[in-house]
Design a protein around this nucleic acid. Structure first.
Length: 580
RNA sequence: GCACCCAUAGCUCAGCUGGAUAGAGCGCUGCCCUCCGAAGGCAGAGGUCUGAGGUUCGAAUCCUCAUGGGUGCGCCA
């Protein structure tokens, strides 16, 4: 249920009527017509730009169009006034019954209130995390995981058919490094002194893997050369790492639908097929790349390579798909992987990458564009850095020493809910400050608690109302007559609730889940503000001396809680019923 | 050198497919608990939306250029 689209439909219908009566010419483009809440509530309940948008193509003055449109709209029972303002805005005021119907719908529909059918069941594949299986997830991965998961929830809430997918980068040299590192830990488990040279992973987390390997194979790999054990350990170690990563994701509350393996693409012909497809389009050739200017690579030598003509699809330079030893570059199986996602059946692709992969975006888009003839859009969201603070001091991490802050560290300290919410308070392309102290603080400085507090307050009100004898199930509350909901303060709060379905659509369209978090903070703020008005104006309190009066007041409170809870559900955060 | 991202109040940031007088938190100055949870609320001060052009009835938002910051740039993934 979306009041804004309802009214927009009404406006569009009125425009059609004007076309029929000859007040407007035929064939006008109405796509740019919007119905929005006005920035200043004094202007009315909703504003439409219709007259201004149509003025030019209709070759009429905006105010003339607005006057006629206003007259038509004023005939609608639901619209109590339609006034022309400024350059041609049309400000609408709605009948109170429309606003009173909002909490009722919320109580009847529950979390479904904000759902949208804008997605039309379009199949969207969201690839996120895709951390290399070489160690536990760290904070950077965490943000990507949370954003990807929340975006997925948001899109399915908006009517898309969403697949959450993890691409396991288990085909490259980094898993050899992993295997060698595990081998060292294996030797260590056998009581040997080991050192970790550059190019190995020194992290303590591999100790268990080394021990597990010992438990599995005993001393079979001792005093053996790499060719003897590398393949086996690689397999064993990546499997162990994926166990670790899956557990990390579980702790964070992320559940993937599909895990895809890079390595599994080898030997299936899928890579060759994808490249053949590009070749058939004349997009594969052997050539020599120009060196980048100004950067002066020390050991630059002109070299002939097999290249993908990505410049035909918007990239800056063509990209190599083969190394000089004839093996594929990282890019190549990824091309095949993206093609696989498309052929499996999806209409849109979304990739969530770390910001350090920014240079990779154009070539990936080029590949998808070429392979799908531009039919399947690929949106890449780059996740910026998370800067950790403790006591206002930046947190030092060293990947070299293996001392990085892991997902587990963060979640164990502040909990999954707080972690998730804070990770979603900024848009993905802005860096995020994560302060451990503020994350744990219970004050308005901490947005999570501010929102949770609003929800808990409603629960508290309902508990008290129940003790007073009120019926508090959603069905009971939905059955209430809400025509007494007329004060400015109450209607203001209702209007914020009415924005929820609209906000969901905006957030889904822009692929920006942080908007949900922002909205929840605004809603919580409106609620707290309303709540305190009850100190002075006792009519506004939810709990009244008279039971019947209480019963008629609490549906609004419950409606707020439902929307908060629906929003938190998209973010993957559990609403709390009381603060402790 | 090129590409991508970013630039909004003292600080951290919102800002709707372009909309009316640009918002919030922190900090600062004052208020508000005999009253549903003060873990909160209200009010005030604080802005050339980095700069210069352009498009538009209308620009923080779109385009161009400049400045400042981040990221990346052929056998790493």
């Amino acid at each position: 249920m979306n009041l804004f689209t309802d009214i927009k439909t009404t406006v569009l219908t009125a425009i059609e009527a004007m076309v029929r009566s000859g007040d407007l010419p035929e064939g006008l483009e109405t796509r740019a017509v919007t119905v929005e809440p006005p920035r200043d509530p004094l202007h009315g309940d909703m504003a439409t730009n219709a007259a201004m948008v149509l003025a030019k193509p209709a070759k009429m003055k905006p105010r003339d169009i607005a006057e006629k449109l206003a007259a038509l709209l004023a005939e609608d029972d639901r619209i109590t006034s339609a006034e022309v303002a400024g350059p041609g805005f049309l400000n609408l005021r709605l009948a109170p019954s429309l606003w009173q119907a909002v909490p009722k719908s919320i109580l009847e529909m529950g979390h479904d209130f904000g759902k949208s059918d804008m997605g039309q069941g379009v199949r969207v594949n969201v690839e996120f995390v895709s951390a290399n299986p070489t160690g536990p997830m760290h904070v950077g991965h965490t943000r990507g995981a949370v954003v990807g998961d929340a975006l997925s929830s948001l899109l399915s809430y908006a009517g898309y058919d969403v697949t959450r997918e993890y691409y396991i980068n288990d085909g490259g040299a980094q898993v050899d490094v992993l295997a060698r590192s595990v081998y060292l830990r294996y030797l260590e488990a056998h009581g040997q002194e080991v050192e970790f040279p550059d190019g190995t992973y020194p992290g303590e987390y591999l100790k268990d893997v080394g021990a597990a390997l010992k438990a599995k194979v005993g001393d079979a790999y001792l005093d053996k050369g790499e060719q003897f054990w590398l393949t086996d350990i690689r397999e064993f170690a990546t499997a162990e790492m994926m166990k670790l990563i899956r557990e990390d994701l579980r702790v964070l509350g992320v559940e993937m639908d599909v895990y895809s393996s890079e390595k599994a693409l080898y030997g299936t012909g899928q890579i060759e097929n994808a490249i053949q497809r590009l070749d058939d389009m004349g997009l594969i050739y052997d050539g020599i790349l120009e060196p980048p200017k100004g950067k002066k690579p020390e050991d630059w030598e002109p070299r002939e390579q097999t290249l993908f003509r990505s410049t035909d699809h918007g990239d800056d330079v063509d990209r190599p798909i083969k190394k000089s030893d004839g093996s594929w570059t990282y890019f190549t199986p990824d091309i095949a992987y993206h093609y696989d996602k498309v052929t499996r059946g999806c209409d849109q692709l979304i990739d969530i990458f770390g910001a350090d992969h920014g240079g990779y975006v154009k070539r990936m888009k080029a590949a998808v564009s070429a392979l799908t003839d531009g039919e399947v859009p690929l949106d890449v969201k780059l996740i910026q850095l998370v800067k950790l603070y403790k006591n206002g001091e930046p947190f030092k991490m060293s990947k070299r020493a293996g001392t990085f802050v892991t997902l587990r560290d963060v979640v164990e300290q502040v909990g999954a809910d707080v972690t998730r919410f804070i990770m979603l308070t900024r848009k993905n392309d802005a860096t995020l400050d994560f302060d451990f102290d503020k994350a744990l603080e219970q004050s308005s400085e901490n947005p999570v608690f501010y929102v949770q507090y609003a929800h808990a307050r409603v629960c508290s009100v309902l508990r008290n109302a129940s003790e007073q004898g009120a019926k508090i199930t959603d069905a009971d509350l939905a059955a209430q007559d809400l025509s007494g909901l007329t004060s400015d303060a109450e209607i203001t709060l209702v209007k914020k609730l009415a924005e929820w379905p609209r906000l969901v659509e905006i957030a889904a369209r822009t692929h920006e889940p942080h908007r949900i978090a922002t909205y929840l903070q605004e809603l919580a703020s409106e609620f707290h503000s309303f709540y305190y008005k009850g100190n002075k104006e006792t009519d506004l309190r939810f709990l009244q001396d008279d039971l019947a009066a209480t019963q008629s007041k609490i549906p609004l409170a419950r409606a707020v809680a439902i929307v908060i809870s629906a929003g938190l559900a998209i973010l993957g955060v559990t609403p709390v019923e009381e603060m402790r």
